[in-house]
C-alpha cells in the first residue's frame, strides 16, 4: 500500500469508525445440522401472501363473501342438474 486513500477523507474515516458491530455468542459447530436449519428457516417470519387481499375493508368483505357466493352457486347448479 503506497498511500492511504482515506488521507483526505477524515470525515468518512470518522463516520466509518462509528459503525460498531456487536458480536453474539457463536458456538463452534463440529457437525452440520441441516435439519435444524431447515426448521429454523420454516419458522422464520414471512410475508402474509394474502396481505394485499385483506388490507382494506372491502377486500376483506370480498374474501369472506366469495366462498359463500361460490357455495351458493355450486348448490344451485347441483339443484338445477337434479331437476
Amino acid at each position: 500500500m503506497n498511500q492511504d486513500p482515506f488521507k483526505n477523507d477524515q470525515f468518512i474515516k470518522s463516520k466509518l469508525d462509528e459503525y460498531h458491530v456487536e458480536i453474539p455468542d457463536i458456538p463452534i459447530r463440529t457437525k452440520t445440522k441441516r435439519w435444524d436449519r431447515f426448521i429454523s428457516y420454516l419458522g422464520s417470519p414471512a410475508k402474509n401472501p394474502i396481505e394485499p387481499a385483506v388490507s382494506t375493508t372491502n377486500r376483506l368483505l370480498l374474501v369472506k363473501t366469495v366462498p359463500l357466493v361460490g357455495a351458493a352457486v355450486l348448490t344451485l347448479l347441483q339443484v338445477l342438474v337434479l331437476i
Binding site: 463516520k15 466509518l16 462509528e18 459503525y19 460498531h20 422464520s44 414471512a46 410475508k47
Partner: peptide, 21 residues
C-alpha cells in the same frame, strides 16, 4: 417462492450510526 421472504428487521440506532450503516 416470494411469500417465504423473511421480513426485514427494523433496528433502532442513533441517527448518525444509521447514516453510516
Amino acid at each position: 417462492l416470494p411469500f417465504l421472504t423473511p421480513l426485514p428487521k427494523e433496528e433502532l440506532h442513533q441517527a448518525d450510526r444509521m447514516t453510516i450503516r
